[in-house]
Amino acid sequence: MKKKCMWLLVVLSVVSLTTFLVYWYFFWPPKPFPSNEEIVREVNRTYEEAGAKDILDTLFVDTHHVVVPYISTNEDYGLSYWGWRNHKWQVLTIDTKGEPKVWKVNGNDPSSFVIVWNVDPNDQLQEIQYYLIRNRNYGMTNGAEYYFPKVQMKKEISLREKSYGILQLPKNWVHVLNSVLIEERVGQPSLFLHDIFPLQNAYFGWIPYNESGKEVFPEQTVNGSTYVVGDIYQEHMLIMNKVDLEIPK
């Protein structure tokens, strides 16, 4: 009898300990975000070329995802992406330049998409226009004609106060993106289409403007390198020109 009780106790404690450990490892609320010195150390330990020197800010996307814009020793404006994973804050990706990108925080769910940027002040940009584009498309399948209207949606961001930032996709964009994902299945059905993004006809774009409202090419902000540590989905943003846009009178 005594032996049985003992065994029961052992089993119970093993089960509860495992439960606790699993919970602790995967579901424990995030610890406070590392200090700036720790971030710098971690970024440079992960990717030496990053050469991080100063941390500009820590921008929380949500409780588990953080963007940290930084300046490097050779005055490059870069970005690091962080996530709370396996009970620690991990660098997910390092961009040595702060060209705008879309971080797909929750895979292909557009409501989790965030635009992230850290523009080099030497490029003297005053404003960025972000675009969601889906090309106009005509066609015919099985004798039925179909038509995809053109999508061209704009969101302006001022860089006057800060040259870095994050932007949750506007609600309307999320709506339209979701419907574009549904529509893509029309005409060209495929088993795997739902997993495919970049969509064939839809993309994100941006146009940089200087203080006199002229388009400029952001030489210092683009052509960086990216070091991916793991398990992160980013979407490139195309640099566009005003001539690519449709501006009806």
Binding site: G139, K242, V243, P248
Partner: peptide, 27 residues
């Protein structure tokens, strides 16, 4: 009928590339 032929011509032939209107501009 979805007259894509006509719509195509209207959009692409009769308007400058950067002044185009969208036939269906609302969702």
């Amino acid at each position: 009928m979805i007259y894509i032929q006509d719509w195509y011509e209207e959009t692409y032939m009769e308007m400058e590339s950067n002044e185009r209107n969208e036939r269906f501009p609302y969702q």
